[in-house]
């Protein structure tokens, strides 16, 4: 393998990993606070992508690439984030809240149900063919001595990092973040201390879903928009979150990048047949669960007595 091919694989792996990281952040945030895996996350992402697509196309019309496309893309993203935030809160209210005191399995199953409802409704309403979301900017690739990267790939990496830092600051430094951490530790005690736990949980879902919307729109630029777009990517992002230590925000970022690199190099260097690419992620999931179930960056939680 030539040096430029190696670096190209590295770049491909990093950007693929950036996509996983982007989605894994939303997964991990909800889990970190509620100890609950929102399996509908990937489908909220899909809804976000559709909303983004319609708003962007509607605002843009036939305008050529320029400031206006950029502005309308930004507006589309904001609209999509707000709508998905509301959708996330509604889902929590309808499908998860009544089950809060039930066994741990109940909300998980409910989440899988929500996931199917969302993707099937989308197939019914929008049809199942892929739709193209046009780039709002010039996506001509940039070449560094044979190693090529597109502006879109850079954008994905940058947005993932920004999202990770902002999320961390929000959870660690703000009043709401503090309330979230308290809720995460012990809901009943938090309530006794005067924290509005219902509001905190609603807020968590709103933020998680808004993050999903951002991820959905950015991924759709490359992968197109279709009803099952969140399924496989969502599952892989979940694996990434587990690898990084679910609940750990920087762990999700790291897990995503690692998974992207493993998938790329597993095929390119270790000669795993390309048809088996998807099995790499799930092989890693099994390994992590066997060897280090708390994830690479997770804390071992002591059972409270």
């Amino acid at each position: 393998m030539g040096i430029s091919e190696f670096f190209q694989h590295l770049m491909n792996g990093l950007t693929l990993g950036g996509i996983y990281a982007l989605i894994a952040l939303g997964y991990t945030m909800v889990y970190g606070i509620l100890k609950f895996i929102n399996f509908a996350h990937g489908d909220i992402l899909m809804v976000g992508a559709y909303i983004g697509l319609f708003v962007f196309d509607g605002l843009r019309g036939d305008a050529p690439l320029g400031t206006w496309t950029f502005v309308s893309f930004f507006i589309a993203m904001l609209v999509s984030m707000v709508s998905c935030g509301l959708l996330g809160m509604a889902i929590e209210r309808i499908a998860y809240k009544p089950l809060r005191k039930a066994t741990r399995l109940a909300p998980l199953l409910s989440a899988i149900g929500v996931s199917f409802i969302l993707s099937n409704s989308a197939a019914w309403v929008f049809g199942t063919q892929s739709r193209k979301l046009n780039y709002p900017f010039d996506n001509t690739p940039i070449s560094f001595g044979g190693v090529v990267i597109t502006p879109h790939q850079i954008l994905i990496l940058v947005v993932s990092v920004i999202m990770m830092v902002t999320l961390k600051l929000f959870v660690d430094r703000t009043r709401m973040g503090k309330a979230m951490r308290a809720t995460s530790l012990d809901q009943d005690t938090a309530m006794l201390m005067g924290i509005n736990v219902n509001k905190v949980i609603s807020m968590t879902f709103a933020i998680g879903s808004a993050l999903a919307a951002v991820g959905g729109i950015l991924i759709a630029l490359d992968y197109k928009v279709y009803p099952t777009m969140g399924t496989m990517t969502g599952l892989k992002a979940f694996v990434a979150a587990v690898v990084g230590g679910i609940g750990n925000i920087s762990g999700a970022m790291f897990g995503g990048i690692l998974l992207g690199l493993l998938e790329t190099f597993g095929v390119a260097v270790f000669g795993i047949p390309t048809g088996l690419k998807d099995t790499i992620a799930f092989g890693v999931l099994i390994l992590i669960l066997l060897i280090k179930p708390e994830g690479l960056f997770g804390k071992v939680e002591k059972e409270k007595v």
């Binding site: 091919e5 190209q8 694989h9 491909n12 693929l16 490359d222 992968y223 197109k224 496989m232 998938e263 790329t264 095929v267 390119a268 047949p273 390309t274 048809g275 690419k277 998807d278």
Partner: peptide, 16 residues
């Protein structure tokens, strides 16, 4: 190079 139906990312194969 091969892939599974439904794949969206072909950059590894294309780089090879």
């Amino acid at each position: 190079e091969s892939f599974q139906v439904g794949d969206k990312d072909f950059k590894t194969q294309l780089t090879k």
